[in-house]
Design a protein around this nucleic acid. Sequence first.
RNA 1: GGACCCGUGGUGUAGCGGCCCAACAUGCCAGCCUGUCACGCUGGAGAUCGCCGGUUCGAAUCCGGUCGGGUCCGCCA
Length: 618
Amino acid sequence: MSQAIESPYRSHTCGQLRATDSGRPARLAGWVHRRRDLGHLIFLELRDRYGITQVIVDATEAPVAHAAASRVRNEFVLSVAGTVAARLAGTENVRLATGAIELRASEVEILSEAKTPPFYINEPDAPIDEALRLRYRYLDIRREPMQRRLLLRSKLVQAIRAIHHEHGFVEIETPNLIRSTPEGARDFIVPSRLKPGTVYALPQSPQQLKQLLMVGGLDRYFQIARCFRDEDLRGDRQPEFTQLDLEMSFVDEAAVIGFVEELAIRVMAAVVPDRPLLEVPFPRLTFHEAIERFGSDKPDLRFGMELIDLAPELTDPTGAAVSGFRVFDQALADGGRVQAIVAPGMASASRSQIDELTELARGYGAKGLAWLAVEADGSIRSPIAKFLGAERAAAVVARTGAKSADLVLVVADRPAMAADVLGRLRSELGSRLGLADPDVFGYCWITQFPMYKWDQENRRWDATHNPFSGVRPEDLDLLTTTSGDLARRAPDDPAGQARALQYDLALNGWELGGGSIRINQRDLLARSFALQGQTADGMAEKFGAVLDAFEYGAPPHGGIAIGIDRWAALLADQTNIREVMAFPKTQSGSDLMLDAPSAPEPGQYAELGLRYVGPART
RNA sequence: GGACCCGUGGUGUAGCGGCCCAACAUGCCAGCCUGUCACGCUGGAGAUCGCCGGUUCGAAUCCGGUCGGGUCCGCCA
C-alpha cells in the first residue's frame, strides 16, 4: 500500500509483514484463501490484493477465536487480530513474501460469510469457462491474474497521464451524447426524450471535438476517452473501448510521432521495465514498404519471412510472362503479382497440412496457393514443378532464399490481394511456428498512407483514415481528377496517388493507433471533401461545427488516438482485450453479469415516442 | 450475414449407440487429527449429460433445430 489510510479493520495489509515485525501486534483483514484445520490448530491463509499471510489459531491459546475459525470457510471476509510471530524453524514458506512469519490470532472476527464460489478463486492456473467468469466477474476479479492485469492497466493509464501533464497537455472530457458523426462504423443511438423523434449518437471517437478544442486555443489536449462502435465483436474489439486521444496545435508529423514515441518508451519503462524493445527509435516504414515487405500495414517486425517478388524469375527480358504455369503468367499479364514467403522447416508438411494452408489462403481471398518444398537433399518437390521446369523451379527457390527443409508458398493475384493473403499467412505461420520472441515488444510507425481509396459503387475517393487528414505537401498537386472537374471522378485520377500526413503505430502485429496532421484551410478541405464526393450541403450538415470553426482562425494541428485496451492487453501478454477490461461484453454484445441489454420498462418507449416493431424478443 | 469449435455433478474433464439411473480429479458436507502450507485420514451427498424435436427395441453418444460461449471471414481504425 502506498499511503496508509487509518482503518479499524486492519493495521497492515496481507502482503506487508516481515520477520522484522516479529513480536508486534497486528490486525489483518481479507478473504480466506485457504483453511487447513488440524483439529486444535487451524491455519488460515488470509488474502487481500497485496498478498497472503498465514494466520495460526491455537485452541489452547485462543479458544473463542478457534471456535470462530472452525466455522470459517473459503472466501469468508475476516478481520484477525494477533501477534506477528516468526515461524518455527523449518516451517517457513518461501513461496510467500510473508512466509517468514505468521499471525498468531487472538481474535477472529467474521465480517462476512461466503457461499462456495462457482469456480476456484485460489488457483490462478485452473481453467474456467469464460462465460462463467463473466457472469461472476466480481469473483473473477478477485483472482490474482485479473488483479495483476487490472493493476497493470492502471499503471499504464497513470504513466500516460503523468507524461502528458509533464508536457503541458490539458486533460479535457468531451461529451458522450453527441451528434452522429460520419465515421466508418455504425453509431450507437440514444433517443432523446426532450425532443421526441430525435437521437443522440455515442461518439466513435472525440475526433471533431478535439479539433474544435484546437480552434479553442488549448494547444495540447488529451483524454482517456471512452468510444463506442456498433459493429461485430472480436477478441480485440468491444462495443465500448478506451482510447488515448490527443491533439496538438502548431505541430508537424515529426512532432507528433516524436512525442508519442517518447511516451511509448517511457510507458514501457514504467509498466514493463524488464521487457526488451525490439528497436529504438522505432522503425518507420512507409505504407508502400510495409505492404511490399510484409503484406500488412501493421507488420510484426519480430520475425522475418518477408514477401519475395518472383516476377524476375517468371518473365523474359522484355517483361513478358513465360513461366509455363498458366496461373502465374495470367496474373502477371493482367498486371498482378506473383509473390512468395518461406515457411522455415515446413517442407515436411503433409499433404493435408498444405491443403489446410490452401484453404486458409482461399479464406483470405486467394484463388489458390502454390508451393515448393525443398527436400533435405536439396531437391524440389512441387505440384507446379512440371509446369515451370526443373531449372525455373530451382531459380524460383533460389530467389526466395529457401534452404533445405523449407517450404515456399506462392500466391498469384492482383497486387493488393497477393500482398494481403501472404501478409495474413505470414502472420498465421509466424504464430504457429513460434517465430516471434514473445518477450520482445516490436513497435513501428507506418507513414505515408494513401489519402484515398476508390469507391467504385459511388464513384468517389473515400478517405482512408479520416476525412480531415492532410496531404503531404509534395502531393498537393495530386488532389485533382484527370478531367480537372472534381465532380467527374475516375479510378485513375491523380488523387489515387496522393499520400496523407497520416501515421499508424503498430506493436507486434497489432494496430495500436493512428493519427494525422489535419487540414486546417477551408479551401483545401473543400477540395478534399469534393474528391470524397461530399456536396457543400452534405459537408455543412455533417461537419458544420468544424467547418464554421475553421472560419474563425484554425491553427495547424494534428494528433493521434491509441487503443488503451489493446495496449494493455499486449503489455499483459494477452491476445484478448477482455482480459484487461473489468467488465467486458461477450462476442454477441451482452453483459452476462448485468444481463444487458434488456427490454425497456413498459412506458419507456412511450416516453420516447418509440414503438418496437422488430421480431419477437426471446 | 457466413464458417468452424465447445456445452456431462459446484468446477475442470472422461465416456461418443446397450457393459452408464454416467467415471475421474477437485470442490462441498460430516467425523478425526497441535505445525500445516494444494495438510492428511475416514465416511457421505451431489449431474436424467444446455434446451426442443427426430432416428432407434434402446440416445450423454446419431440427425435436425434452438439457446449460450469462443475463434475466424465479412464488417470495423
